[in-house]
Computed example of a mutant assay.
Amino acid sequence: MAFNHAGAFSRGRNVNPNSSSQPFVDAQFDIFEWHLQYQSCIRYFIDHAQYSAPVQAVAAFVNIQLPFQRPVHPILASQPRSGASPGSGGPAARAAAAAAASAAAAAGGTAQPTAFVTLVPYIRRLVATAFDFPAVLHGFFGDDWVAGIGPMHETERRNYLFAAKSDNWLKVKADYDMDENQTVPFLRPLQNVSEEEIVNAETTWSEWLAMQDWMLGPRTPGNVGGGGGSRLSRGLNIKQEED
């Protein structure tokens, strides 16, 4: 079945998601500035993206509910609205949002437009199904996606590599499944991987192996990948840069 991932969203920018930095560890990472951009991504996702036909098509294909599709407490907008249906996806999207709100009311619940929405499950699902192209990420999370969810995207790509190395396919798939029948329909190998991204993952994986052997603090090995009879000797072949 042919499916043009990048073609689903024509406004995406050609941004390389791979980076040598680890933004949530790097001392230069400004968490307060990042949070402002992340909130912008949440607002875009809730108010616009979830009502667009391309985002709904991708979400259906990878089997993940959008906030307004939740059977209980659907999230219709980032802020309360009065007298108007949320979204900008046309009559069909507005009708779907109204139906979700009616279903919640019939079930004894109420829509909670200001409820917290985490974007991590959507980033994880896009990574695991190889839909994490810049154009698709832009379509889901808006113009601020690079600064807003870019660090999380980088981390989830590394986590996916670690999951594949840690266990077999069946257990990895189970880890990426979600409740309410939102099982991942398929897994694909990580796409558009650079040599730099692999080396960064290798280094971080070796640091994890060192922690498993309590090689921390004063016991930290001076040369990553060194001996000492630890798990590092069974680790990946780290590519050291020449001086």
Rank of each mutant, 00 (worst) to 15 (best):
Y176W: 12
L216D: 07
E154W: 09
S206T: 10
V136S: 03
L187N: 02
Q191T: 15
G217N: 14
V146Q: 07
F141H: 05
P185S: 10
V184M: 07
L137F: 07
Q212L: 13
A135G: 09
S166K: 11
M215P: 01
D132M: 05
Y160L: 00
M178S: 15
M152L: 14
L190R: 01
D175G: 14
F133N: 03
F131E: 04
D177H: 15
G142K: 01
R188W: 06
D144T: 14
F162I: 09
E156A: 01
Q212I: 07
A130T: 04
G148T: 08
K171A: 14
F162P: 01
R157L: 05
L216Q: 09
E207C: 06
S194L: 10
A163F: 03
M152E: 03
V224W: 03
I198R: 15
E195I: 08
A164Q: 15
N181S: 13
L209E: 12
I198Q: 08
T204C: 11
Y176A: 11
T129Y: 00
Y176G: 04
G217Y: 14
D213N: 07
R188S: 06
L161M: 14
A164N: 11
T203S: 06
M215Q: 13
P221H: 09
A201G: 05
F140R: 00
N200E: 14
P151Q: 04
R219N: 13
E154K: 05
A147S: 09
R124D: 08
A174E: 11
I198L: 15
L190H: 01
Q212G: 10
K173F: 06
T204F: 04
A210C: 06
E207M: 11
Y160V: 04
P134Q: 06
G148I: 12
A174N: 06
P218R: 13
E195D: 13
E180C: 10
P189W: 10
G150H: 05
N200L: 15
A147P: 02
E156G: 05
V224K: 00
V127Q: 03
L126Y: 01
A135V: 02
T183V: 10
A128Y: 02
